[in-house]
Design a protein around this nucleic acid. Structure first.
Lengths: 221, 221
DNA sequence: CGGCAAATGATTATCGATAATATAGAATAG
DNA sequence: CTATTCTATATTATCGATAATCATTTGCCG
């Protein structure tokens, strides 16, 4: 017997349950809905998502692999990160990886530069129209593009598995409440200039400074 | 009914099946037993390990989280990495992370320095006695200690989830067949000197050079 | 012969139930 | 009154079976 004989609530069954569950859990962990240390009880979650234990467990194992939760045998799975300190530390890693990625990416093919420029233009336009979510989309696209341009697939995998897409979205939303994106955008402009010029050292340095200014968000209010 | 009524072959049931399975799969992937792209069929593995599908799937999901395999809905799970190029790229990441970790770790508390020195002494002793496996144990202990000393728990998580313990073991064994550990050990000695002196920039640089020399192993024979 | 369609086989995704283990509270002995 | 063992109860780990989907082959018709 299928679990969902009745019509589905929101999303179609485009992907399997465990993917939906994983994404939902990632968001809940990173936005603080589940505080650090909270136990994720399988049957409770199974009830919430209207599925059996199995897909829940698989989603949890995937999160375990990417380090967002830990589990102890017969003691359950607990949330690991997502307080401000963990966010700060994960951004330290992100800065480290992206700075190295841009060094590896330079010199950059015209095609890649065009793609990055496209992201930057879209960011600029979104900012002009004050469309925050669109700005975030394209900013994330730019940064992921940078990682891809390094040619190092392991970098990409790690960037993805730490869910910097979700993290970045949360961080940038938080920034929007405090200050303007304008200085941030300006740094991206300079970054692209340095990339174009083949100036790896300064490009990497701009990225480090960029993330240092983003890190301000992680100060307690 | 339990799957293992008969006495177990090797290891006691100290940990749950999915952990054994995960570790076994990690080793098989990294040592090349499963070539890149190989499909990991759940029921076949279930047969091999004498368990049902569930723990296999969970192990696979954990590996998916740490990026060693990818899976496509209803199409199965395939090995992602572990050719020479993937090893090289993962070591590029390792070098990047460890170099930054040592910068963050400096200045270092006397307790941590003592611990690192202890690893180094053990490495030296093992090398003198030509005990390769012992040397590897302590070298890995030193490097993980370095990551921990950075105080960044995300670094530790990523280092663990990429299974640098298993990778390092394989790489160092391979090195042993080609050249002596002596120059490598010497670099570690210098590294610790720089750490003691609080010289972050040079310590990080030694680490980068160290991994560059390790990377020689990844050249095709 | 060649292309389409249905049937077949292989594999994954999920289910519901059961076994194993830990935790907490009650009962008991000292 | 405290420490200890025992007994529920909650939770995880695993099982065996079924449903859903994909891949391949077969059979039919032009």
């Amino acid at each position: 017997m299928r679990a969902f004989a009745e019509p589905r609530d929101t999303d179609l069954k485009r992907t399997c349950m465990r993917d939906h569950i994983r994404d939902a859990l990632v968001t809940r962990i990173l936005d603080g809905h589940y505080p650090a240390g909270a136990q994720l009880k399988e049957l409770v979650l199974a009830g919430e998502f209207n599925v059996s234990q199995a897909p829940i467990r698989e989603a949890l194992r995937e999160l375990e692999g990417s380090g967002l939760v830990t589990s102890e045998r017969y003691r359950g799975t607990r949330v690991r990160g997502a307080d401000l300190e963990e966010m700060r530390q994960s951004y330290e890693l992100r800065a480290t990886i992206e700075a190295r990625a841009v060094e590896l990416a330079i010199p950059c093919s015209p095609a890649v530069i065009a793609q990055l420029q496209d992201c930057l233009d879209a960011m600029q336009e979104a900012l002009a129209r004050n469309e925050v979510e669109r700005y975030i989309d394209h900013a994330l696209r730019l940064h992921r593009g940078l990682i891809e341009a390094s040619g190092n697939r392991v970098f990409v995998t790690v960037w993805d598995s730490l869910h910097f897409d979700v993290r970045g979205r949360l961080v940038l939303r938080r920034m929007a409440e405090r200050s303007s994106y304008a200085p941030l955008l300006q740094m991206h402009v300079e970054l692209l200039e340095r990339i174009r010029a083949g100036d790896a050292a300064n490009a990497a340095d701009i990225l480090r400074r960029l993330f240092r200014s983003v890190a301000e968000v992680f100060r307690p209010d």
